[in-house]
Design a protein around this nucleic acid. Structure first.
Lengths: 236, 236
DNA sequence: ACCTGAACACCGTTCAAGT
DNA sequence: ACCTGAACACCGTTCAAGT
């Protein structure tokens, strides 16, 4: 983990967009999605709301900046020029996002919101670019680049979001409850569904109890990758 | 703007959970995500907030109920026992969700939120069940049911959300602007990205301008389906 | 059992005023 | 140019009181 120095603010440090974004991330990590308010920010930065509005247009823009900064950090980690295969690179990028969401659970909702609200802005191109380059490297025909990249990105965001929710919910349901216990609860709830209406969900219930998240996540990536590589030779 | 007198309610109709949910859907469809407030609901139903809280625990529960009702309606449309192949059934279910989100754009965010907040509640099993039965019918080994179904569901929700956002954004950016114009704008924005940092995204930009949404969406479904059917014979 | 409506605590945002 | 902080409009939620 990071963010060492807490300690009262240096009065001499000028307020800046970066300091605001940093404080916002800390607030979100600490107090959850509902924890980011201008009052809390104001207190943490020892200023008034007007000062924040000088650097940031409104809360929505702040959330965008926050999301962008965390995603950029997550994507910057990858080496980008090693001898890995495109498949391995894609797994790495996807795992990077997966872990970022695991570390910052609010990121899942935020990413979904931002990707659907303004797909042409900073975050979407960043993610598309990282994944898309590898899709191209796989030898997929150009006409399928968009479809293939979208499928990977959507799966990654969706699965990672679901996964982080499991962690968060485990904590919410009880401090003593860990992931395994929580998944057990979900599993039991699914098993108690109506047998006539929910035969399939009941059947997967026990499988959900014992799955390893990361393994499960990568299995999904591989599934999509299989579909993608089949695009190279559509004939049979 | 506002509060145009609402054609007064029938005083005799009792308030009920269903009437509240119905009014909430109308409000969301008409005024967007921000349009659903207890004040607006209160006015539309000609009551006080207390009356609503008698039937519904809080706003979060109301949103869950609203989402559930719309999703249930979307999934109920499918015939369920025709002679279609599993692939065709899956396409039908996915398209049903796709169209529901197209019709109710707020549904995308809402579904993402609810699926990640409480995956064991009503909506998730409903969607999983519909898709999962067909996955099973495809002959996928039981160990892969969860992975395969997740991949399909995540792709569907993500892609549909992105798509509905395009429609909404087109309207927001200008009343005279339609989808095609909007996608042109996005496309142009992508083309103006830095050529060194965003070569791939620039390359897909022109492709985005001319794509047909539904066709694009189904292509993604087929891609995932290809990956899934490959699970049947993992060898080779 | 069901509904009323004033009241509360809290939120994002603005803006005249200071330096 | 950058910051202060009181004030505004609005929100979800509560609750004593009515029927």
């Amino acid at each position: 983990m990071t963010t060492r120095a807490r300690r009262t603010q240096r009065r001499t440090e000028a307020l800046s967009r970066e300091r605001i974004v940093k404080a916002a991330v800390e607030l979100l990590d600490t107090a959850g999605e509902g924890g980011l308010t201008f009052r809390a920010l104001t207190e943490r930065l020892a200023t008034g709301p007007g000062a924040i509005y000088w650097h940031v247009a409104n809360k929505s823009e702040l959330l965008d900046a926050v999301t962008d900064s965390v995603v950029a950090a997550a994507l910057a980690v990858e080496p980008a020029d090693s001898g890995d295969s495109p498949q391995e690179e894609i797994r790495a990028v996807a795992l990077g996002l997966f872990e970022a969401i695991e570390e910052h659970p609010w990121l899942a909702t935020q990413l979904a919101t931002q990707l659907s609200r303004s797909p042409w802005q900073s975050v979407a191109p960043r993610v598309f670019e990282s994944v898309g380059r590898q899709v191209r490297a796989l030898g997929v025909p150009e006409g399928n680049w968009f479809t293939a990249t979208s499928a990977l990105v959507h799966y990654t965001l969706g699965a990672a979001g679901q996964n982080s929710a499991n962690t968060v919910n485990a904590q919410v349901l009880g401090p003593g409850m860990d992931r395994a216990e929580f998944l057990g609860t979900v599993s039991r709830a699914w098993e108690e569904l109506d047998p006539v209406e929910y035969p399939f969900t009941r059947a997967v219930a026990n499988h959900m109890r014992e799955h390893d998240d990361r393994e499960q996540f990568l299995a999904g990536i591989d599934l999509v990758l299989t579909g993608i590589t089949a695009l190279r030779s559509p004939a049979e």
